[in-house]
Simulated scan of single mutants.
Amino acid sequence: MSFSDSIMSFSERVKHNLPKEKIDILQINLGRKCNISCTHCHVEASPKRTEELSEIACQKILKIIELFPQIKTVDLTGGAPEMNYGFAEIVRVARKFNKEVIVRTNLTIFFENNYEYLPEYFADNQLRVVASLPCYLEGNVDKQRGNGVYNKSVLALQKLNQLGYGYDPNLILDLVYNPVLPQEKKFNLTPRQDNLEENYKKYLKDNFQIKFNNLFTITNLPIGRTKFYLDKFNLTQDYLRFLEANFNSATLPFLMCRNQLSIDYLGNIYDCDFNQMSGLNAVNHQGKKLTLDDILDSNSLDLISQIRTEDYCYGCTAGSGSSCGGALL
């Protein structure tokens, strides 16, 4: 069901034609356990959540990573992925089979008991670190993510730099920008990624001697806590209209859902993490909801012909586009 009846549904906009391409990325949401609780989190993760990857699902994921050479990247997210079951074992197997492994970290996890080892572990395994830092200014970060998060993030980034991240070509450190959520009907697209990256790099270098590789700008989609927030200020429909008004068809070939499978902690499959959080399962050509068992039984990753969409997909296709890897254009 669409959030708003006053806009053209996304499926109509793309003429019900958004075909899946050959899968080369597995994005695995290991669970909703997290050490912090961010206002924009579409996963609704927090220290109170207990959902995490099941042992059965973990074993199936390991088998799939081993069986399919076409998988180039294993992308680990959460929650705080490091806190959830299966993290270390998936890293071990993925690296054994020469997959790029991305860990989407909130940085503050480095300062929690029993997780102080993570920076060295990341470096030892040459994990690509994609770290949330929704602004380079302290006030905006702490507003979204909690008091003290900015200072901890700075210390974490400095530690990663000391280990070679941002300098060694095998130790990639990327940052993620999310816009501040509005409280009135005044919406803006995410700034140009290249310009904002320059600002981030200058500010963090000048003030903290921090170096990183890339900045990813990600649009807030009206899902999870972002939707709760927009609903609170009666802005959800207006925000969707804004995104629709800025729809850019040139982004469609580059959408992350085209060549990615998103897997939840129970082993269900989705086209993307946003669909996962909305409960919009991926289906095969017969309309059957797909799971890890279907991949193993058919010995194929490429079971999806048509991507399922919702009106929040306008968020990924507005302006320069948005994905887990930042702007699309």
Rank of each mutant, 00 (worst) to 15 (best):
Q183L: 08
F233R: 03
E244G: 01
K232R: 08
N170Q: 13
N234H: 09
T226F: 13
E198Q: 14
E197R: 13
Q193C: 08
N234D: 08
N170M: 13
P182R: 05
V180H: 03
I210P: 04
N170L: 12
Q193N: 15
R241Y: 02
N170Y: 11
Q209I: 04
P182E: 05
Q209M: 11
T226M: 09
L173Q: 11
A250S: 15
C257E: 10
R241K: 13
K232T: 11
I210K: 02
F254H: 09
Q237G: 05
T251I: 06
Y203W: 09
N213Q: 04
L243V: 01
K205M: 09
Y229G: 05
R225I: 02
R225F: 12
N199E: 15
K232P: 00
N214C: 01
F242E: 06
P191N: 13
N195E: 15
L204W: 06
K185S: 10
D194G: 07
L171R: 15
N207Q: 08
F212Q: 00
P169L: 12
V176L: 07
P191E: 03
G224M: 12
L181Q: 08
N188H: 13
R241C: 13
D206R: 01
L215P: 01
L196G: 13
L240P: 02
L240M: 07
K201T: 13
D231I: 08
P182Q: 04
K205W: 04
Q193D: 10
V176C: 05
L230A: 08
Y200H: 15
N170R: 13
K227H: 10
N234R: 04
Y239W: 02
L240A: 01
I218T: 09
N234W: 00
F228C: 11
N246P: 05
T190P: 11
P253T: 06
N213R: 00
E184T: 14
Q183S: 10
L252Y: 02
N214I: 00
P179H: 07
Y229T: 07
D194T: 15
P222V: 10
I210H: 00
Q209A: 12
R241H: 08
N170W: 03
N214A: 02
P253E: 03
P179L: 09
K232L: 06
E244Y: 14
F228E: 15
N246W: 03
D231M: 05
